[in-house]
Amino acid sequence: MGNIKIKRGVFDTKLELEHAGVKAGFPSPAEDYIHETLDFNRDYIRHPEASFYGDVEGDSMKDAGIFDGDRVIIDKAVEPRNGSIVVAFWNGEFTMKYLDLTHKSDGYIELRPANPNYPVFKVEAGDNFEVWGTVIHLIRTFETF
């Protein structure tokens, strides 16, 4: 069931970008002088003290576009809603699934995979369960160096 490894992030590095967008037409000579900065704190991280990386293992979220080897950014300060992708600690392991709150009035919630080959987990009162954080961003590496 465990399909994510949690890593503490240091969100204070800025990366210079030559061009912020990718254009399919002819470039403008004026764009040679544009230098923007990608700042993870400003652009992607709302709560640095509550943000973590997670390295995805497995294919239980593949139909959500999250694949084995991807990295996600998890924010523990973001309140999850019905349908949020969450990292949950359940019965001693971390797992990443959709949070389904539609059965809360019936006394349980569900953790739903985004792959029909995996079971839906029914979480009931008394289970060792905690929504650990909400997945807010996906990072994918296409080529290794």
Rank of each mutant, 00 (worst) to 15 (best):
A24T: 13
A24S: 14
A24F: 09
G25V: 01
G25P: 08
F26N: 09
P27S: 06
P29W: 05
H35Q: 13
E36H: 12
E36N: 14
E36W: 09
F40D: 01
F40G: 00
F40W: 08
N41E: 09
R42Y: 13
I45K: 08
I45F: 06
I45N: 10
I45E: 09
R46C: 07
R46L: 13
H47R: 10
P48W: 04
P48C: 03
A50I: 06
S51N: 09
S51Y: 08
F52E: 02
F52N: 02
G54N: 03
E57L: 04
D59F: 08
S60A: 05
S60G: 00
M61Q: 08
G65F: 10
G65C: 04
D68H: 15
G69Q: 07
R71W: 11
V72D: 05
V72R: 03
V72G: 04
I74W: 14
D75Y: 04
A77S: 14
E79V: 13
E79W: 01
P80M: 03
N82A: 00
N82L: 00
G83R: 07
S84L: 06
V86G: 08
V87I: 12
V87Q: 08
A88R: 08
F89S: 04
F89L: 11
E93S: 07
F94Y: 15
T95V: 13
T95Y: 14
M96E: 11
Y98G: 03
D100W: 10
L101Y: 11
L101M: 15
L101N: 12
L101G: 14
T102K: 14
H103L: 03
K104D: 11
S105F: 06
D106P: 05
D106E: 15
G107E: 05
Y108Q: 11
Y108M: 09
Y108K: 12
I109K: 01
I109P: 06
I109C: 01
I109T: 01
E110T: 10
E110I: 03
P113C: 02
N115A: 01
P116Y: 10
P116R: 10
N117V: 00
Y118P: 05
